[in-house]
Structure formats: structure tokens, C-alpha cells
Amino acid sequence: YWITCCPTCDVDINTWVPFYSTELNKPAMIYCSHGDGHWVHAQCMDLAERTLIHLSAGSNKYYCNEHVEIARALHTP
């Protein structure tokens, strides 16, 4: 949970406070499906809480801010 998930990541173990109602003692993470995949903080991706809950409940693929354009290009005929 205490990783630098992207170039603009500002989640710090020493200063972090809950942002989403689902967070208690660690930041919400979401899995990016690009390549071998990697974890990113939901807050760093500017996800709305409703979107985070929807993604967490389903089996939808998610692409982080850095990889979403690549994913779109691969799926565009």
C-alpha cells in the first residue's frame, strides 16, 4: 500500500488520511490491467468513490491514467 504508484503519487505513510469511506487504515488500491498489471492508489487516479466501488465489485478491467490511452489505441480498429 505504501508505494509510489505513479509519477504524481502523493500517498505517504506519514501523512496519509482516509479519503474514501471504505478506507480505514490503508489507502484504496485498484489493479491496472495493462501488461503484467500493477497496483495504483484510487486517490492518485482521481477515481470517484462510486466508480471505485463499482470497479471493486465487478470483474471489469481498469487501466490507470498512464495506460488508458495505450489500452484505447489497442482496442480501436
Rank of each mutant, 00 (worst) to 15 (best):
T8I: 01
C32A: 00
P77N: 04
H34E: 09
C6G: 11
D12M: 12
A71L: 13
N60Y: 09
M45Y: 04
S33H: 08
G37F: 01
A48L: 12
M45H: 14
A28I: 07
W39E: 07
F19M: 11
D36F: 05
F19Q: 03
V68S: 09
T4H: 05
H34G: 12
T22E: 11
D46P: 05
W2K: 07
Y62F: 12
N60S: 10
C32I: 00
W39K: 05
L47E: 04
S21H: 14
V40E: 01
V11G: 01
R50D: 11
T51E: 11
A48E: 13
D46K: 15
T76D: 05
N14T: 13
E49D: 11
H34P: 01
H67M: 02
E69Q: 15
N65D: 05
C6S: 15
G35L: 10
T76F: 03
T22F: 06
A71H: 06
T4W: 04
L47W: 02
H67C: 11
Y62I: 04
M45I: 02
I53C: 10
I70D: 15
S59Y: 11
V11S: 03
N14Q: 04
Y62R: 02
A57C: 08
T51Q: 07
P7E: 14
S59F: 09
K61M: 15
E66M: 14
L52N: 04
G35S: 07
T76P: 14
G35A: 07
I13E: 15
E23D: 15
A28E: 07
H34M: 10
S33G: 10
N65I: 15
M45C: 06
Y1P: 00
S59M: 10
L24Q: 09
A71N: 08
N60E: 14
W2C: 04
E69G: 12
A28F: 06
V40F: 00
I3V: 10
W2D: 05
G37D: 00
G58K: 10
N60F: 05
E49Y: 08
I53Q: 15
P18Q: 03
I53R: 12
A48W: 11
S56P: 09
A71S: 11
Y62A: 04
W16H: 06
N65V: 12
E69L: 06
A42N: 00
C64F: 00
V11F: 03
C64Y: 01
N65Y: 04
N25W: 11
D46E: 10
N14S: 03
Y1R: 02
C64E: 00
W16G: 02
Y31N: 04
F19L: 11
C6H: 01
T4N: 13
D36C: 09
N14K: 12
M45L: 04
Y1K: 03
S56M: 13
A73P: 13
M45A: 07
K26F: 08
W16C: 02
L52I: 06
S59H: 10
C32P: 00
T4F: 09
P27D: 00
N65F: 07
P7D: 12
H34V: 08
G58E: 13
Y1G: 09
A48Q: 15
L24C: 13
A42T: 01
N25Y: 03
W16E: 00
H54K: 15
Y1Q: 04
T22G: 03
S56Q: 11
L24Y: 04
A71I: 12
A48T: 13
G35R: 03
N60T: 11
A73R: 12
I70C: 15
D10T: 13
H75T: 14
G37A: 02
L24R: 08
E66T: 10
H67P: 03
S33K: 08
G37T: 00
L47S: 05
C9G: 00
N60M: 09
R50S: 15
Y20H: 07
E49S: 05
Y62P: 01
D46S: 15
N65M: 08
D10W: 14
C44E: 00
S21E: 15
H34D: 09
H54G: 13
I3H: 05
R50N: 05
A57M: 07
C44T: 02
P7K: 14
E49W: 04
I13T: 04
A71C: 11
D10H: 11
W39L: 09
N25F: 03
L55F: 10
Y63F: 12
W2R: 03
V11M: 05
V40C: 06
I3R: 11
G35I: 09
A57G: 09
L55D: 07
G37K: 01
N65T: 12
Q43R: 15
I3F: 14
F19P: 02
M45E: 05
T76R: 09
M45P: 00
V17N: 01
T76S: 10
A57Y: 08
V40Q: 02
Y20S: 02
L24M: 04
L52R: 03
V17A: 15
D36H: 05
I70F: 12
C44Q: 00
N60R: 10
E66F: 06
L52A: 07
D36Y: 04
E69T: 12
V40N: 02
W16R: 03
I3T: 09
R50G: 13
V68P: 08
H75R: 12
I70E: 09
I3K: 11
P27I: 01
V68A: 07
P18S: 03
L24W: 04
Y31H: 10
T51S: 11
A28W: 08
L52G: 03
L74F: 15
A73L: 14
I53S: 14
L24F: 03
V11C: 13
I53G: 12
V17D: 04
A57Q: 13
T51N: 06
C9S: 01
G58F: 05
Y62H: 03
P27T: 04
L55M: 11
